[in-house]
Nucleic acid binder design. Structure first.
Lengths: 208, 208
DNA sequence: CGTCAGATATTGACAGTGACAATATTTAGC
DNA sequence: GCTAAATATTGTCACTGTCAATATCTGACG
């Protein structure tokens, strides 16, 4: 009895690629990148162990598509953070930093994956495009000054690199737990945000 | 014929732990962290696949010991860089940055491993000690000012975190190849070092 | 010297993984 | 409707980490 349950899933999933990416992200954030395997994602999506191959080729493909998804969201988060900021350069730096670090702490696994080039295929179109778009959002955030007049390109590049390095390093060290000692040395509310504020206040871009 | 070659390695290696670490580092830098497996290290050292277990327990143990070795060298490199620097704060910042980024580019695989807490056992004594020692070297590098008088601790922590984040982020982005576009925008010699100099020149710590 | 416990290394096994090939099922273009 | 392409399954293989059982060596203690 109960030979065949009438409700049987169709042979084809319908939107397996998106489902696999969603499951992959859940695994990544909940169990770490170690646990994110092709077979685990397939299991979570309820398909056979070799099904992902059709959509991603290999594990690098899956990770690259997931990272691409991350960069798309990352660029959007940066753009949103800048949209609320005014014209004051320091205000904008702060908004950029909060957006950058906020994304990293909100999606720590994804953020770490996005900056682990060794496991990604940078030539995959989806990833390539998403990275370029996020880069646009980032340099747009730095190019704060009045539109039309821009500082000399060399100085501009140095400033952008400095700000980017600062917030990126902060986010990385924060996720690694290496800033715990620093946060603890703060007075009152000992949050990462207040440390970031203090850090941005301790630094001055040359021609502010 | 040729039953038993008289020259046969002894059953015990003698210093297998150090040999495994040396082979592991070679694999790490030459083939990437993906290729660094317990069995690969054992093969390179010419021992059986389970021999590493006696010295490291598991893969995390091997990676942690290797990272510890990296932190020891890293601390020494920072200390050496600071030893040659004078008393001028900006001079010292520059020396610290060069030491930090120089180590990262000289040992990219090792540096990346050192800051991948997910695969390391931070409680392993060797790693714990090495990290603390390197941290000492780092804050000693930042605490530049005339001995005796020190800035308020809050500001001090913020400044240290800012400088650390800046050079760490720069090193990370550089190793990821994300700064290629920035380097290319420089005039003349387009080296990472010159970009680092420009970056440090574009930033000012508040009470310099 | 001798012996024996502990350290060190080997062999063998097992489950999990990525990748590939062969096959089955469904979809879509014509 | 028919057929080619897309999608999914099953089976297999080599490789890996880990563990258990065993072999060999070392050193401490008589």
């Amino acid at each position: 009895m109960n030979h065949d349950v009438p409700i049987r899933r169709p042979y084809h999933h319908g939107d397996l690629k998106a489902a696999l990416l969603a499951e992959a992200e859940t695994i990544l954030e909940n169990e770490g990148v170690q646990a994110l395997t092709l077979r685990a994602a397939a299991r979570a999506a309820g398909v056979s162990h070799a099904a992902p191959k059709n959509h991603f080729g290999d594990l690098t493909g899956l990770l690259s598509e997931l990272a691409a998804l991350g960069f798309v969201r990352f660029g959007a988060a940066l753009a949103a953070a800048m949209a609320e900021a005014g014209d004051d350069p320091r205000q904008r730096n702060k908004a950029m930093g909060r957006g950058y670090v906020g994304f990293a702490t909100a999606h720590p696994g994804l953020f770490a994956l996005m900056f682990r080039g060794e496991v990604l295929d940078q030539d995959r179109p989806a990833l390539r495009d998403a990275v370029l778009a996020a880069r646009e959002a980032l340099i747009a955030a730095v190019r704060a000054r009045a539109p039309g007049i821009s500082p000399p390109p060399l100085q501009m590049a140095a400033q952008a690199t400095a700000l980017w390095s600062l917030v990126h390093g902060f986010a990385m060290l924060l996720l690694e737990g290496r800033l715990n000692g620093m946060i603890r040395s703060l007075p009152g509310d000992e949050t990462a945000d207040s440390l970031l504020d203090a850090v941005l206040a301790a630094i001055r871009v040359v021609d502010d």
